[in-house]
């Protein structure tokens, strides 16, 4: 399902002062416009503090916009009434960066994954037993097993927790998934597993991905299109192959040059 971000600007809290106050607040996003076509994977690259996460929060209306619009299939997310917004949230889900902080430590895996089904029970109308079966199905879909069902988050590794986060995001049968650096908190070997899982899920479920990362290798592996953001402004955007082969801006060239080469013989740490 297509997502359009139109001229979005987000300014964080200018301190309330007198009329002579020069404080304009912090411009986290400055006139950002993006088009994410249905069924594709759209990558967003940027360094820490460039506004990537703020943009996801603005898309999900966890943050109010200063200016601009976010259209999902033509409906303005920020113009919706609370009830319609809740309905939309079932279709537009997010996987967070930190798998340690994004799961409630006092809830079992079953309850965590079942929660979207409970929140949107008017949409799904499942009995308690059907819900549990659906949870099990979701866990199996992300590569976890039934014996994990009634354990608590602290009993899992980072990779497993991220799978739980993915299962929770998929529970309400969304068609659009925001992935906010889903692998950056994980070990390299586990990163590959989770990326392959995401790749497989996209093909099986026909999902649209909005993939945020600072890792260009990950973007190249997953995404069709990519946009580069720097200090709240879009630097350039286009198909992945084009951006990687013929970057137009200096900032993108710099990012590409900083990419480590997978060939260990070319590592700067290797002498001789």
């Amino acid at each position: 399902m297509s997502l359009d971000i139109l001229n979005v600007t987000k300014i964080f809290g200018p301190a309330r002062g007198g009329i002579l106050s020069r404080d304009e607040g912090f411009r986290a996003l400055d006139d950002v416009s993006l088009h994410v076509p249905k069924g594709s994977s759209f990558g967003l690259v940027g360094e820490s503090g460039s506004g990537k996460t703020t943009l996801t929060r603005c898309i999900l209306r966890l943050e109010n916009l200063t200016r601009g619009r976010v259209l999902y299939e033509g409906t303005d997310i920020h113009g919706l009434a609370q009830r319609d917004l809740r309905r939309l949230r079932a279709r537009l889900q997010i996987v967070f960066q930190d798998p340690y902080a994004s799961l409630n430590p006092r809830m079992t895996i079953h309850d965590i994954v079942a929660e979207p089904l409970l929140i949107h029970r008017d949409l799904f109308r499942l009995s308690a037993r059907q819900r549990s079966e659906r949870v099990l199905e979701l866990l199996e879909q992300v590569g976890l097993r039934s014996e994990h069902l009634f354990r608590y988050p602290h009993e899992f590794s980072g990779g497993q927790r991220q799978r739980i986060g993915i299962a929770r995001a998929l529970a309400s049968r969304p068609d659009f998934l925001i992935l906010d650096e889903p692998t950056s908190a994980l070990d390299v070997s586990v990163q590959a597993d989770v990326l392959n899982l995401l790749h497989r899920l996209q093909q099986e479920l026909g999902l649209t991905y909005f993939f945020i990362s600072h890792d260009l290798g990950v973007i190249r592996y997953i995404c069709d299109d990519v946009a580069v953001i720097y200090r709240g402004k879009l630097v350039e955007q286009g198909p992945v192959a084009e951006i990687f082969d013929r970057p137009r801006s200096d900032y993108t060239r710099m990012l590409l040059a900083a990419m480590p080469d997978p060939d260990p013989d070319k590592s700067p740490f290797r002498q001789s």
Partner: peptide, 23 residues
């Protein structure tokens, strides 16, 4: 962050307080 996650799922204030914060 799990509170943000609950909000993104569409949970209302009652559920967030009762199921996520108070426990």
């Amino acid at each position: 962050q799990f509170i943000t996650a609950a909000r993104a799922l569409g949970a209302g204030p009652g559920r967030i307080l009762g199921r996520h914060i108070l426990p």
